[in-house]
Nucleic acid binder design. Sequence first.
DNA 1: TGATACATGCAAATAAGTTGCAGTTATGAT
DNA 2: ATCATAACTGCAACTTATTTGCATGTATCA
Lengths: 138, 138
Amino acid sequence: MPNSIRDSLKAGGKKLTRARIAILAVLEQSHFPITAAEIHARLIKARAGADLVTVYRNLAMLQGLGLLSAIGFHEGQMRYEVCHGRAHHHHIQCRGCGKIIDLMLCPLQNLTKRIEEQTQFSVDGHALEFFGWCPQCR
Amino acid sequence: MPNSIRDSLKAGGKKLTRARIAILAVLEQSHFPITAAEIHARLIKARAGADLVTVYRNLAMLQGLGLLSAIGFHEGQMRYEVCHGRAHHHHIQCRGCGKIIDLMLCPLQNLTKRIEEQTQFSVDGHALEFFGWCPQCR
DNA sequence: TGATACATGCAAATAAGTTGCAGTTATGAT
DNA sequence: ATCATAACTGCAACTTATTTGCATGTATCA
Ligand SMILES: [Mn+2]
Ligand SMILES: [Mn+2]
Ligand SMILES: [Zn+2]
Ligand SMILES: [Zn+2]
């Protein structure tokens, strides 16, 4: 676990528990956003079993610290990905098999000012996901 | 109800029922995406009460015909908006009061080709929502 | 080694959305 | 108009994701 994550936890008065370390390890090893249930399953496989409710509570806490981002693909559940220390990016999901891959781009950075002028909102985030068909499912 | 919607329904072998007409009326009158529960509440107010499950079934059917789009703001429920006959656009939601307003823009149209080259996926849709604070909540 | 605030597990609750089924209705053909 | 039929509806029950209450356990720091 990166020292900067340790520091964020400490700064937030959070403890370095066995379950929390294992959950973060699973998240850091995943190359795409995963669900709470998937995290739970990987914890069990890694003999670091933690209750599903502990997974949910840690996901909420880590989001609160800004270390994780939650992503919705309209699947009926959320997916989570470490954002700390990674470049801002987006994803595309295959409508056939559900495969998700990173898109290391963001076409929205310089749009914010225009939206703020048009709407009088202050913009502080966005969600962007693409959908389509992967080569295997096409 | 526009004739083009009537036609889509007929083409899909769907009937013009009292509940369906009322649900479509609620959707067409809303200026922002609404939830199934909100549609249900408005039906009751309009003395056109239909069961919530009928609302869900009609929402799924209308999406299948391409007349509605479903939008997720990470609120734990979906929102639905008529897309038929309206220009493609996106939304911004206030993190304070939940207010949603239209953004009549889309910065993604010409990005598709680039993503298809990079990923080998064929891209057929995207979800884009902005978040921020409205003037009242700021 | 304590004290204590934070964290966990289990069970129960909540909430969105779905499904089975029996009865109802729109539709278009007679 | 009446009829046959496929589509539709309401109700109850179900599924699944996520949250909450509470008693017990543990990391941290003095
Ligand atoms: Mn990613
Ligand atoms: Mn809109
Ligand atoms: Zn972005
Ligand atoms: Zn768009």
